[in-house]
Amino acid sequence: MKKQRVIGMFDSGVGGLTVMKEILEQLLDVRIVYFGDTARVPYGNRSREELIRFGEEIATFLIGQGAEVIVVACNTSSATALPVLRERFDVPMIGMVEPGARLAVEKTIAGRIGLIATETTVRSKAYSTAVSRALAKGCLPKDPTLRESWQHGEQPITLTKAQGCPLFVPLIEAGLSNSSEARGIAKTYLTPLHAAGIDTLILGCTHYPFLEPVLKEILGKDVLIVDPARAVVKELKILLQHLDEWEQSGLVESQPALGKKPWRARYYVSGDPELFKQVGNTLLQEPIGQVEQVILGE
């Protein structure tokens, strides 16, 4: 019987549930320990030092819960804290930025990629760098015309416009993703992206898929929306295969199995458990069960 791996995940709040949903649907032999840092949401206005400290506290907690891999299901933390966390912890970690950038490069048909994200993620320029790195490493558009034009130096492929959206996360955390307020704010944020002529839009925050119906309504069918969560699942599959191979070869120590009682997901938050359940239930097909509050950093 194949071992059921334990994946640790964290986000500033409910946003990482969009990534968790993709993982649970595509990987049937994993368990997830999820931590939502709802007492300190949003992360978009936090300093790099704060984000590193938060990440260290949460990663320590998740490892203590048996996590063998950690998915940093927060673009802001992925863009700022993840390189430091990888240096300080032995467990493999997957972020959102690199997989999302690669997927956008593959999907674009005109080479004009847009980004909506927190202001911290936009300022970091992590996605712009990741798009350039993906191209340098051989990741190319699937569209043959654009691929050939780029290879001949005739058509650039760039992150053409990045837009900070500071009001989106508070709206979503309050359960207002389908409200008239969300539509009005989304129109304001998307106007510069429309003006820039983007053909592909990266959802650079794991909260934003909650807004996908609203975004599609405003953007229209000519702009493809890219959710990095789908690319993260693909990368996670490869990593888990490698873990299996390493354990079989004795390169890494096999972790003991958890208790016999079956479970697929456990939820922990730093803030109000009931509010997390209320908003989270709007996304996941199965109702969220027990949510436990854990206070970190004290």
Score class of each variant (00 low, 15 high):
N178F: 14
T200P: 01
G15Q: 04
A130G: 07
V214T: 06
H242P: 06
G164A: 15
A101K: 11
E148C: 05
L211D: 03
G66H: 00
Q4N: 15
K107V: 07
I185A: 02
G297T: 05
T108H: 06
G280R: 07
E217L: 13
I32F: 06
E212C: 11
Q151W: 09
T18E: 07
E119C: 11
T120A: 13
F10D: 01
K277C: 11
Q163G: 02
A101N: 08
I94W: 00
K261Y: 15
V91H: 01
F276P: 00
K2F: 10
A257M: 13
V84S: 01
V291G: 12
L224T: 15
R183Y: 03
V226R: 08
L236E: 08
L283A: 12
Y268H: 05
R88M: 02
L135D: 00
E50P: 01
V169A: 09
Q26A: 15
E49D: 08
F10W: 09
G13R: 00
G204D: 09
I157K: 05
E119R: 10
Y34M: 09
Q293S: 13
V279F: 05
A110F: 05
M93Y: 01
W263A: 12
N178G: 15
P42A: 01
R183P: 02
S12C: 13
E25Y: 14
R112Q: 01
I70S: 01
W150A: 00
K234H: 07
L201A: 07
F210N: 04
Q293N: 11
I198C: 07
R133N: 15
V269L: 06
R88I: 01
R266S: 15
A73K: 06
A67H: 07
V6L: 10
R266H: 15
Q155F: 02
G289Q: 04
Q293A: 14
L82V: 07
V169R: 02
D227E: 12
L82A: 00
Q151D: 09
R40K: 04
V6Y: 05
P170R: 04
K277R: 08
S47N: 02
K237W: 06
V226K: 04
F10K: 05
C205P: 09
E181T: 10
T76K: 13
G271K: 02
I185E: 02
V291Q: 10
M96G: 12
L82P: 04
L167E: 10
P170F: 11
D29I: 13
G297W: 02
Q285W: 09
T160F: 02
T38L: 01
V294Y: 07
G8D: 05
P287L: 04
Q293C: 15
E98N: 11
K107W: 08
R40Q: 06
G44M: 14
G184L: 00
L283H: 00
Y34F: 12
L239C: 05
A81H: 06
L171H: 02
K137Y: 15
P42T: 11
S12K: 13
P144A: 01
T80H: 03
S249K: 12
G8L: 06
L283S: 09
G100H: 04
Q151L: 12
G297H: 05
L115E: 06
V226Y: 00
P192C: 12
T206R: 05
L236I: 10
C205W: 09
